[in-house]
């Protein structure tokens, strides 16, 4: 990686009742194909070492993770500078299969929410029952007026992904949801 690349909102940070931080560049690869097929699961395992995640789940190992996005779409997350080579390897492994690999590392923005009240903040913008949200689950949903995907990426930590063009909107939105004094005491 060189300084020619920048993430959507480098260094953006807000300290509310949870903290909101832009997570920087993250490698992402879209893999489309029948995720239930052995061929695709096999290629994924061979190339990344990751098992095919179950419906709406994230499997991770080390700095790599695979997220189930739809019955025929997987999102692979990995260090930014490894994405190009990994996409090529995957494409080669899937040659001859009806499968599509695309490097989408620049298409999105990633935010990290940290704190005991992460669901209290997210509940203000996502129509999701987080009391039934499990570690290892990814939920694609709506954050106010834009599409988002959220998952628990650690203790009291949630990762939120949106399209790059709405990164500023998402950051402002998350900051408003986490504003000090607005704790709703719903999940905490």
């Amino acid at each position: 990686m060189s300084d020619r690349e920048t993430s959507a909102l480098p260094g953006a940070h807000f300290a509310g009742f949870v903290t909101v931080s832009e997570a920087g560049l993250r490698g992402m690869i879209t893999l489309r194909g029948d995720l239930s097929s052995d061929a695709i699961a096999g290629a994924l395992a061979d190339v990344t070492g990751l098992d095919m995640p179950a419906q709406r789940c994230v499997n991770s190992a080390g700095d790599m993770a695979a997220a189930w996005m739809s019955p025929d779409e997987l999102l692979l997350m990995l260090p930014y500078d490894q994405a190009g080579a990994m996409a090529q390897k995957l494409a080669q492994a899937l040659a001859g299969e009806f499968a599509t690999v695309a490097n989408v590392s620049d298409a999105r923005a990633v935010f990290t929410l940290q704190g005991a009240g992460v669901f209290d903040a997210l509940a203000k913008i996502c129509p999701v029952d987080f009391s039934e949200f499990d570690q290892g689950e990814i939920r694609r949903t709506r954050a106010a007026q834009v599409a988002a995907a959220v998952w628990m990426s650690g203790a009291d930590q949630v990762t939120v992904v949106c399209f790059r063009s709405v990164a500023q909107y998402m950051f402002d939105l998350l900051s408003a949801a986490a504003a000090p004094g607005s704790e709703p005491a719903l999940y905490t």
Partner: peptide, 12 residues
């Protein structure tokens, strides 16, 4: 929350 800067998403 939809007012001011986040009245609607602006794509940049």
């Amino acid at each position: 929350e939809a007012r001011g800067a986040i009245f609607q998403p602006l794509r940049r």
